[in-house]
Design a protein around this nucleic acid. Sequence first.
DNA 1: CTGAAAGCGCTAACAT
DNA 2: ATGTTAGCGCTTTCAG
Lengths: 347, 347
Amino acid sequence: MSVTIKDVAKCAGTSVSTVSKVINGYYGISEATVERVHKAMKDLRYYPNASAQNFATRSTKTVAVLANLSADIAFKNPHMFEIISGLEESLSAKGYRMVLQSVEESNVYEKTEELISRKSVDALAIHVSVITHPLSSLLTRSQFPHIVLGCPSFESQVCWIDNNNVYSGTIAASYLLSMGYEKIAFIGGQYYDLGSTNRLQGVKQALNERNCKLEDGYIWLGESTRDDGYRMAKQMLEAQTKPDAIICANNTIAWGCLSALRDMGYSVPDDIGVLTFDDYPLSQFMEPPLTIVDINVRDLGVQAGKSLLRILRHQNTQIQTFVTISNLVERSSTKNKKTGMRQNYRH
Amino acid sequence: MSVTIKDVAKCAGTSVSTVSKVINGYYGISEATVERVHKAMKDLRYYPNASAQNFATRSTKTVAVLANLSADIAFKNPHMFEIISGLEESLSAKGYRMVLQSVEESNVYEKTEELISRKSVDALAIHVSVITHPLSSLLTRSQFPHIVLGCPSFESQVCWIDNNNVYSGTIAASYLLSMGYEKIAFIGGQYYDLGSTNRLQGVKQALNERNCKLEDGYIWLGESTRDDGYRMAKQMLEAQTKPDAIICANNTIAWGCLSALRDMGYSVPDDIGVLTFDDYPLSQFMEPPLTIVDINVRDLGVQAGKSLLRILRHQNTQIQTFVTISNLVERSSTKNKKTGMRQNYRH
DNA sequence: CTGAAAGCGCTAACAT
DNA sequence: ATGTTAGCGCTTTCAG
């Protein structure tokens, strides 16, 4: 029925092994035969059968992405798909395919075991939200090439990648200091909100390095909701002398914070500067457009893919952690306090 | 190295073909041997090699999803990923895998040709945004199992699936009529905005069937931007006698419309009811929560997967078009004009 | 530089 | 009900 390597060999007047060698770019074949074979392939419209190649090479050139694709996931967590898109980018650049498979905490272990045992894929990329303890030990025990997308919340030996929230915090604080802000406040999530906590830590670090300090009255921690962001901003402003800038640990809190400032009659950035992390989901809705530390989600995926490829290339190397860094995007919710200059561009 | 079907056969004291038969659920094997084989598989922790199965059966049990995964795509178009998640749901339910591959208009033809020729996958699901004319004819010429996610903007013989926007329009209008609204207005996108145009058509249909009519002055078409939504709503209210409800063709326009109503001092729903389509991206930000016609994006993906499986099962059947329907979600931007009752639940 | 041939692990006639 | 065996299409020694 369809044209095989035999047909090409016959047509080119060589053996199948020679054809195979030119397909796979071996050196050690004369220019002349390489050309004859290429011509034959072209004439016959030959494409190597992927399944046969996989079978013969005992490799699939595909990696499985495991995540919980429950209802409305794309609306609730677009970040995850942006990461996945980044992954696809670096994987496909090296000829790897990506299969996307939905799992839950309850079945991720057996699904993973099956993927590994059946040799269905060459590697795994697993979203941190479905990582369980048994899965983590399966991963390290089997030594199967893998990367976890996001930092696991428990101690483990798995290989993971995440963005560096501490670093993002230092970027935020350094930027504000460089713009002439001096009384900086932070409102964020509770201690168990790792992202918020790490960002706060980074803020503190940066301030310390410049001999500034984050006063206790300028740190408010609560729920990551609009309402609590509102409450915290309001209570802080009622209790304390006004800070000149507020760093909000995330978008949702920033939303509440901005509402509170507006309701209290403060103008942003003239009375108070506001800065947060990550563009989504508010950047298109906020007035003024927010200065943010962009967490570069897609790049996280790209780096995850590259790390996975590196692991695939050198099975021996044992790297555990990869981290990506972020950039500041200056918009209109902050200004240069020294010069009074403000950004006018909108995103 | 790893355990194969031969090992299982040996362990169970049978032949490989018998083992193969029990793996694939053949009848015509005695209970006793089935059990022996199962025991052997379990004891040896045997999992069939996926590549070998694919090769032997000349099928991959996987479908490729082709879409443009460019930067920020997950934020700009979460709907697409929700569709893809739905697809995964119905495909994995029948043992199919889904590989996600990024393509562009410029390379989708060759990528598709390669996938088909190399028999890399059993079927294709292609997002409408990357459908080109040559691709469309490749699809019909090759008769390769496929489904296009979304209705192509040009005439073609490809098999596609989309949500029924005309129907959504009738739902919107029927609902408003049933709530006692009588002077209904529509603001939407230009004629080339197929979604908007079809929704408008549905609205007209529903009104006609009840012997109502959409007055010319109550139809405003413009750009799908917040600003233009604002402009249209405002100009309509300045020019016409006030409608009692406005149907906005999409979220963005609804956003502008609500702002205009607020600025003009109208209260929603007491002075004017507002209804739009699709929850995303405004539902969490709008005050009051909007009554919407939910377009059920995930279900579109689920149905796409089921259709694809049907096509895979009966290569002969030639179905071209599938359509999914939508539901109304009643919230606080409309009320029952007859009873004065309003919904209080928030989404 | 080229070719013959032995797999890769499983399925599916076909024979028993 | 079970076993024998010939592929599936390609890669990869190994010999020439």
